[in-house]
Design a protein around this nucleic acid. Structure first.
Lengths: 234, 234
DNA sequence: TTTTTGTTATTTGTATGATAAATACTATAT
DNA sequence: ATATAGTATTTATCATACAAATAACAAAAA
């Protein structure tokens, strides 16, 4: 119940349904959604923790400026991508991946355990299978990228799995749409080979080139304006 | 009140006071800390959102394995660094900075507005002043690094300000302690110059070299074992 | 007129008690 | 030994009351 309310309120905030100070009071929310005050308060509390709301006595609940939203929170990012998609957002996200994932790949080359390595390879195989029409390409691509994060052995990078997975679900759909592009198997295999060989520099460079490619696609979409984005938002 | 309880519980969890399934029930917590059940529930809810706890009927509240904690949450990271400091953690954090900050510097070189540029320069000047004994070196260093994140114009990087600031407060203190090291002004000026010149590659490389230096210090501390870390934990 | 001060009303914060829902544990029957 | 039904424990939700903070307003003073 709290979860549902959290979801509803989160989406509503992102969609901009409450501009500025017009956010309803606890009482209004409870009545509108038919929830008790406890549930309402706990949902608001969570959105406060995510930087989207702030509550003060007498003033009531107010929406926080977008700069303060915790974009690194998978919930927030998902709401943004689903209800407020823009190529600009996707570009910003890809810019961050461009910082993180090559570094992660380089680390993985140094630290990957045999099991972790095997998991990356498995992701690659799933991608190849999907290429032949056998399996979900999107899921395969995600598993490959997540496996590399896990292989770093660094808890900070490992934490990013859900975030990357969430965003890839939307962003890959977008980049595929732009040019009928599908993630390049050889480029991904190149990353895997470098990691297996323990070659940090090459692993980082290979991952960098994958993301540079993605970035080019996103930038192209950005230039085409928002009409296509709106159509794709389904 | 909720904040205080959140703080107490968060620190207690990090310190490992509740191993495994021994976490108290809502009722126990309320009694122990003298808080009402509403307050207790809201605090637990927040720790759940941070991945540190999970609550299920009949089973009660349980601590989650450390892999699931949201290390990117400034609260969690602060608790970790304050109550569970280790050079390994610091090394992992620095590994992430090594991915993020050079990329941020490169972006800043492309996007920094005149005001943002001025803010970076201000940070640099504060560092120089601190070097001459005039002002807080730690605060100056933080302001420099945060200013670069802000200058990227990318909300994802900009979000990291609190995280980086939190961690720098502890990590700089540590790295200084290792060798009486203080952050190198020329190296930082090099980054600034490259950003001002709009030279992405050089900005990234310069930032990279700063962090590589930090990494070397941390790695050295790591080798010295945990005794020094424990002393430094004050 | 402007500023200060005090009052009031609104909204969140906290406390308490009661009921519902989920589920680990136990006893029983097969 | 296994399956089934019942029981007890704990969180989840609801409802209500009161406390605390404060924005808005009014009155008084400068």
């Amino acid at each position: 119940m709290t979860e549902q309310l959290l979801e509803s309120l989160g989406q509503a905030v992102v969609a901009g349904e409450f501009d500025g100070r017009s956010f309803p009071t606890e009482a209004d929310i409870s009545q509108h959604y038919g929830t008790s005050r406890s549930v309402t308060r706990e949902a608001v509390k969570m959105l406060t923790a995510k930087g989207m709301l702030a509550a003060r006595p007498r003033s009531g609940i107010t929406t926080q400026p977008q700069e303060q939203w915790s974009l690194l929170d998978p919930d927030v990012l998902r709401w943004m991508l689903e209800r407020k998609f823009s190529y600009e957002l996707l570009r910003h996200f890809t810019e961050m991946r461009l910082g993180l994932e090559p570094a992660a790949a380089a680390l993985a080359a140094k630290n990957a355990s045999p099991e972790a390595l095997r998991t990356i390879e498995l992701g690659l195989e799933r991608m190849a299978a999907a290429e032949r029409g056998d399996g979900d390409h999107l899921a395969a691509d995600i598993s490959f990228h997540v496996a590399i994060l896990k292989a770093t052995g660094n808890p900070f990078y490992m934490q990013l799995d859900e975030l990357i997975a969430t965003a890839l679900k939307i962003s890959i759909r977008m980049t595929n749409r732009i040019k009928g592009h599908t993630a390049s198997i050889p480029a991904h295999r190149h990353v895997f080979d470098a990691i297996r060989a323990g070659d940090s520099a090459r692993a980082g460079a290979a991952m960098n080139s994958i993301l540079t490619e993605v970035m080019a696609l996103v930038a192209a979409g950005d230039k085409n304006g928002t009409r296509r984005a709106k159509r794709a938002r389904v």
